[in-house]
């Protein structure tokens, strides 16, 4: 790896000003949460920072606070801590399940929620240093190459899949992201945080180079709402989802009032399926309805040469996840 300077800010303001100062001096600075993804990127020289701003020294960013208006989660909470948080497990089960499903215990012990949301894609062309869009190049090698793990929903020009487990759950739960930067802070809806390649093929979200994802704000818990996160891997642990589904159901007895289905592993951003979810509204969730929802979730899929299997996989996962959650 290339040598870099580590900076330990005490506050978010210090962290942002470290980023701003670095940029002003022409240095390349990056932020590190748990560092589990960043370290690999640096070792592979895919990122070659001069300065690493270590957020672990910023106080107060790893807690969960809840009041009548919102539940606020510090971006630095580890995935393991998040998955064990009683309040999250009770009221936002899908998020707890998503956090618990990431990688391995070692990764969950150091990896953070904000880091999981902001990690780079695991496309093998990107990770092997090909000059693709994501590495600052001008093409996607996967679109006509080895694309078995790639997107079935993308209009290009990049066909990566978003790798985060927590991101689909956060979108499904209507989370908002508190982003802090040199011009102050802003609240971004989770569904607007992630950007499609046709908007900006080099990045996966709206964060600017001097901005930090500080906190995640969830709407208050509703007793009629339940959520889950299910994913399918090609081994039992330590890979990213081939397909995942975050499902939220607002139930009135056995009738679904409102539903949200957001997929992971199939598109360059968490992939919201409002039309499929809409079929559930005002209905009893039967196996037949779940199958129709599953079909609607993939009806517009456009698989690449080697990832056609993801269509039945997604269909199967959505159908059984919706049904299981409705019967929970």
């Amino acid at each position: 790896m290339k040598a870099f300077t580590n900076v330990n800010p005490r506050t978010l303001e210090d962290a942002v000003s470290a980023l701003t100062r670095s940029r002003a001096s022409g240095a390349r600075a990056v932020v590190s949460g748990g560092g589990s993804d960043l370290l690999g990127l640096i070792k592979e020289r895919l990122v070659q920072p001069d300065i690493v701003v270590n957020l672990k020294t910023v106080a107060g960013l790893s807690n969960v606070r809840a009041d009548a208006r919102a539940t606020t989660i510090g971006g630095l909470i580890t995935l393991d801590a998040l998955s064990r948080e009683a309040h999250i497990r009770r009221d936002y089960q899908g998020l707890a399940e998503a956090a618990a499903s990431v990688g391995t215990p070692q990764i969950r012990n150091v990896g953070t929620l904000a880091g999981n949301v902001c990690q780079r894609p695991w496309c093998w062309y990107l990770r092997n240093g090909y000059a693709c869009y994501k590495n600052g190049g001008d093409r996607c090698f996967a679109s006509s190459g080895e694309n078995q793990y790639h997107a079935i929903f993308s209009q290009g020009p990049s066909y990566i899949v978003h790798p985060s487990d927590t991101a689909p759950a956060l979108v499904a739960l209507d989370a908002r992201f508190r982003v802090v930067g040199p011009r102050g802070e802003r609240l971004v809806n989770a569904s607007e945080f992630f950007v499609l390649p046709r908007v900006d093929p080099a990045r996966e979200n709206v964060l600017q180079d001097d901005e930090i994802l500080a906190e995640i704000v969830l709407p208050p818990a509703v007793s009629s709402r339940r959520s889950t996160y299910a994913k399918i891997l090609d081994r039992e642990a330590w890979t990213h989802a081939l397909v995942s589904a975050a499902v939220v159901l607002d139930m009135d007895g056995d009738v679904c009032r409102r539903a949200r289905i957001v997929l992971g592993g199939v598109a360059p951003v968490p992939w919201d399926r409002p039309r499929a979810a809409g079929l559930l509204e005002g209905q009893r969730v039967t196996p037949e309805l779940a199958a129709a929802v599953a079909e609607a979730a993939v009806s517009d899929a456009r698989p690449l040469a080697k990832n056609g299997y993801k269509v039945p996989l997604t269909r199967g996962l959505v159908g059984r996840t919706v049904l299981a959650l409705a019967r929970q």
């Binding site: 399918i232 299997y309 039945p312 996989l313 199967g316 996962l317 059984r320």
Partner: peptide, 8 residues
């Protein structure tokens, strides 16, 4: 056990 829906 082979899960024919999701290929496991």
């Amino acid at each position: 056990e082979v899960d024919v829906e999701v290929g496991g």
